[in-house]
């Protein structure tokens, strides 16, 4: 039991109306697993991830990493956000060195940064500033930055959601390669079914209103995966069916909201 999410509940109170965001989430992830959390917008998948990161608190329940309860953010969990969140006043190399400042001498930190920039194939851009890079390159720097501090887990919150289709496909291949190389446990939040099938060992499908886990699907296909494989198409259809009800729920809610306002 590497990561253990135990009876997590989350409520938001808005104008005295209590809103259930997550209800009784239980999930166990093994070391080295690539797990996707898939669900429609508003299902609380990002909230769940930020709880694992220690950036937000659960209303009840607890999350344990290797037996230790998560209370605060820490370097044992590297996080990659949808926006690269690179610091614009630092160049690429300095950005990757940011989490290493305290635990390493400058020379060692520099070497480590170089190593991970090489892994994401951006060695030549070490001296560039973030605004000089494309979105895909920025996201690769963010991945290098998260990996450089040698975390036990990599948490990714729709990391490729803001990229164009071609770039996203390239990033998938690169992430898969990095995952095989580093053997990191990855928790990957996405709303794209094909993305989750392409990348993960397991897909946790979440439903909405309130956010619950509605399915835990093992993806047992050889890598690298292709979308024209029969099994992949079959799996996509299956998940689509699961999510259809949930998306209908969201649409209905939105329509009734529109009608009442």
């Amino acid at each position: 039991m590497f990561l253990h999410i135990d009876h997590i509940n989350k409520q938001f109170t808005n104008n005295k109306v209590v809103n259930d965001v997550l209800v009784d989430i239980n999930l166990t992830i093994r070391e080295g697993e690539f797990v996707s959390i898939l669900g429609p917008s508003g299902c609380g998948k990002s909230t769940l991830l930020s709880m694992v990161a220690g950036l937000s608190e659960a209303s009840s329940g607890e999350i344990k990493l290797e037996g230790k309860t998560i209370k605060k953010p820490g370097k044992d969990r590297g996080m990659v956000f949808q926006q690269a969140a690179l610091f614009p006043w630092l160049n690429v190399e300095e950005n990757v060195m940011f989490p290493l400042r305290k635990e390493m001498k400058k020379k060692e930190a520099k070497q480590t940064a170089r190593k991970f920039l090489q892994m994401v194939q951006l060695s030549n851009y070490a001296a560039h500033y973030p605004h000089e890079l494309s979105g895909g390159m920025q996201q690769r720097v963010a991945i290098a930055r998260a990996l450089a501090m040698n975390p036990k887990m990599l948490l990714m919150d729709e990391p490729f959601g803001a990229l164009d289709e071609q770039t996203r496909a390239r990033m998938h291949a690169e992430l898969e390669k990095i995952w095989i190389e580093t053997k990191k446990t990855i928790l990957f939040v996405t709303h794209s079914i094909s993305e989750s099938i392409k990348l993960s060992d397991r897909i946790i499908v979440m439903g909405t209103q309130p956010g619950t886990i509605i399915a835990d699907i093992k993806v047992d296909l050889p890598r690298p995966r292709r979308f024209d494989q029969k099994e992949a198409i079959h799996l996509e259809k299956k998940i689509n069916l699961l999510l259809k009800n949930e998306i209908d729920k969201v649409v209905k809610e939105e329509l009734s909201y529109a009608a009442n306002h």
Binding site: S50, G54, L55, K75, R77, F81, Q83, A85, P99, A146
Partner: peptide
């Protein structure tokens, strides 16, 4: 807030 959250996950 994104910068602050990112920095927090890096132990700052």
């Amino acid at each position: 807030p994104l910068y602050i959250r990112a920095a927090q996950t890096m132990g700052s």
